[in-house]
Design a binder for these strands. Sequence first.
DNA 1: ACCTGAACACCGTTCAAGT
DNA 2: ACCTGAACACCGTTCAAGT
Lengths: 244, 244
Amino acid sequence: MTSPRGNGRGASSQRGPLTRREVVTAALALVDADGVDALTMRRLAERIGVYPTALYWHAGNKASLLAAVCELAHSDMELPPVVGGPPWHEWLRSMGHAARAMLHKHPNIAPVLASQLQVTTSSFPLSESVLAVLHGAGFEGERLTGAYNTVIGFLFGWLFGELASEPPEADEDWTSGFQRKLRDIDSDAAPTLAANLPVLANQAFMLRWESGRRRPMDRSFEMALDVLVAGLAAQVGHEQAVGG
Amino acid sequence: MTSPRGNGRGASSQRGPLTRREVVTAALALVDADGVDALTMRRLAERIGVYPTALYWHAGNKASLLAAVCELAHSDMELPPVVGGPPWHEWLRSMGHAARAMLHKHPNIAPVLASQLQVTTSSFPLSESVLAVLHGAGFEGERLTGAYNTVIGFLFGWLFGELASEPPEADEDWTSGFQRKLRDIDSDAAPTLAANLPVLANQAFMLRWESGRRRPMDRSFEMALDVLVAGLAAQVGHEQAVGG
DNA sequence: ACCTGAACACCGTTCAAGT
DNA sequence: ACCTGAACACCGTTCAAGT
């Protein structure tokens, strides 16, 4: 009950003063393992083997700790090289896959990234790369802003949607109730939905009961990338360059 | 301190037993006014003029109350008519504007919708409409699923990003620190970013310190819609139909 | 500088009891 | 059926005190 250090994290926790990096790493590990709701100052402190209030000295309050956790997860994303790299549409596809890989590695952090503005700090390299690639594709000035916002908003928005939180397992009522409502859909009121239920149920947004962490939406993501790239190409007059 | 009803909500609260609808409406009003963090069972109860535990009888626990709040907000979205309506690309634009109007009417609920899977219940009419329109545009089977996921994921993902939560006002440190970091960007490491800062600062994802609730991203949204529609057109071979 | 230990104001939720 | 009232187990955070 009294919680001095030492039994906290096995071999990896060295002696010596606790460091900020150690706190943030432990917090990300906790989120990855048990979800973002499991991240409480008290629980994290216990896991590290320290008193809760000690965390405040290193990581500030919970909000700034969470921001640091997001930043750490974000740093796991490897950007494709821009100079001497592939043509812009291929680069965007690589970047999309890199972003998706990072988020699937830390799916529990996705809802946090999706809802907060603050966590964007230190993603300047990503911004610069996307901007450079789009500039190279022919976008300038306000249209560069628009294209950039389209790419970031569409891509990350789609991925955050794929990785949305599932209801807590306690709520099996919801899952079974939703499945029943889906099965009982009126084919008069919703004919297209009813007719295509086999390819839609649990595979499409707003029609699924499992998150993309459990059920990755691989093919839909590829098609989304196709649409994004082709749409940008149309904006810049390179329709023929990207293929269907 | 003792909190019987009557002084709770002025004239609008009739006598008689509390109803579920009344609870959910009051909860949405509280979220709209003060943000989702302000929605606690105890505070809501006090506002209605009832004991906290009374809410559980009508609305279940907090998670299901929040789901009901999302559903209520969602019901504020007016779908454009499908049969006898405009061509598919114009319909998609109208739907996009309707979704945006709804979310800008309840911006504080956007982060919840962005992060949770559960809140999708009873959006079957929206799903059916989008599916019908895309089917009419020529998508079938698995490609229909892909196109549907592209539309929903891109559109709502973009809008949730626009309306992300700002840091609490207490955190003026973050805002000013972020602005400084943006101003001090190294034009060697990030030349495109540095050169285009005037059209990017506070107007682009990951480069802004204010949310779209305060600073709507109107023009970028229009361009995003252009890209989405043109990209879908390319998928189905109607490139010439939608215009640039 | 770094951390303990107590304390404060708040949560969501359960449950027995009232009417 | 509908709500009260007390109680429980948890929070985040502050602050004085130790070393």
